[in-house]
Design a protein around this nucleic acid. Sequence first.
DNA 1: CAGTGGTCTAGACCACTGC
DNA 2: CAGTGGTCTAGACCACTGA
Lengths: 260, 260
Amino acid sequence: MPQPLYRQVAEALRQKITSGDVPPGAQLPSEPELEKRYGVSRNTVRLALTALANEGLVESRQGRGTFVRDRITFTVLASAEEGGSAGHGKDAFVAAVTVHGRKAEQVDFRMEVRTASPEVAARLQVDEGSLVVVRRMRRLIDGRPWSIQESFYPMDVAEGTRLMSPTDISYGTITEMARHGHTQVGYRDEVLSRMPTHTEAAFLGVGTGVPVLEMFRTAYSTERAIRLTINVYAGDSTQLAYEIGDVVAGQEAAQSTEAS
Amino acid sequence: MPQPLYRQVAEALRQKITSGDVPPGAQLPSEPELEKRYGVSRNTVRLALTALANEGLVESRQGRGTFVRDRITFTVLASAEEGGSAGHGKDAFVAAVTVHGRKAEQVDFRMEVRTASPEVAARLQVDEGSLVVVRRMRRLIDGRPWSIQESFYPMDVAEGTRLMSPTDISYGTITEMARHGHTQVGYRDEVLSRMPTHTEAAFLGVGTGVPVLEMFRTAYSTERAIRLTINVYAGDSTQLAYEIGDVVAGQEAAQSTEAS
DNA sequence: CAGTGGTCTAGACCACTGC
DNA sequence: CAGTGGTCTAGACCACTGA
């Protein structure tokens, strides 16, 4: 007995999906149909489909069927926000996405004042329970939900600035902070992977079995931590890229070799 | 109509786990025992346990039982391998982990020669199907599986170096490459989140529902891409950290303020 | 309404673990 | 060896979808 039955069925279906035989968005045969085709019981069929759903390959919708997930992936160059240089007139996200010919939207702006949770307090170097300003938004690419962002500011940084208003700041929040004496000179990102909460899954439009990529970005001036941004991305449609040191020389050298 | 039965059972068990009633590492009641206790069939018990495994809360081991997972998280400063500076006598991973007082191991070394897949070829700037040298290893922290690493080298880079031998290179592969004229000056990381394959889940000791964090690191000399390293980490026990620009000033200023 | 996936039962045998 | 989880069957009824 090589592989268990349900894994053989899963492998057969996986093959059809990755080979393009069943293209993204298409519907798989129904469960009774798969029973007959592979000569197994329905529970075994469901074990196979569960495995594929857990890999993010397919998604089942009650009463409708099981479909091949259509994954578009978008890469964010997360190391590009050097110091304050990205805040030149337009939001970095919109600029980056637009470059790729996609339509970027930022919706559902919200501003709240909360007390700092332990996680937030530690990163912002403020006391737990002290007041912080939270700015929330959701981001869409080509009309599809893509990420949830929350930015936390120490109250004394946000006070008296446009950060207190629940609207987009067209020239960028980094510039707004710099105008008030808080110039960003660097940041630290912490990236982790986890399963989404029910709410997150609902907004990001992912079924169960698709993880999220969570990024904590703590921004610093030469004096202190001035902002914490938490981004939650749909895991299977996002890549974060970081370029450290000199990568341009090696990439350009290769290109010129090709060209010659 | 409240919640489905299996979710009620899952919720009851989840409660006992998060409340500390069943501490990390402890064994849950056996499946027949849970059948009796909750008055449901074994399949329903298993659905509940599967759900908990998918959240990374528990882990089942055949023939032994189901146990509460003990999650330790480890943060890797992924932006620390500046140029070639990390290859100073000892492997960077072992050094970084040892600093934290944990025991790091690298096991199961393997060397293979393969043809480049499209993904590998694109990043290494070589033709698809050309020969590449692959070095594999698995990494443990405190004796527990933690990550799987595969490094790909263009054949002409690896040829005639110790990279061709299936053993650890104590002073680091970056140094070994530098000795043969390929000095690393920078790298690009691509980070994504996905569900593990069955094999990966088995090695990393996570349920099939716990995501993995996958990092593609392409290293460059001033001339070309010289290496591609693919790291697969257990998602719920790993954080990747990147520091961009100057973050030290802001952190130190805060500390001296506290101290004064 | 028929067809889909979601939930659930009551069995069975196998593979692995540790005594 | 007994006890554990892993796999598998053959049913059943329910909830949701779309024609």
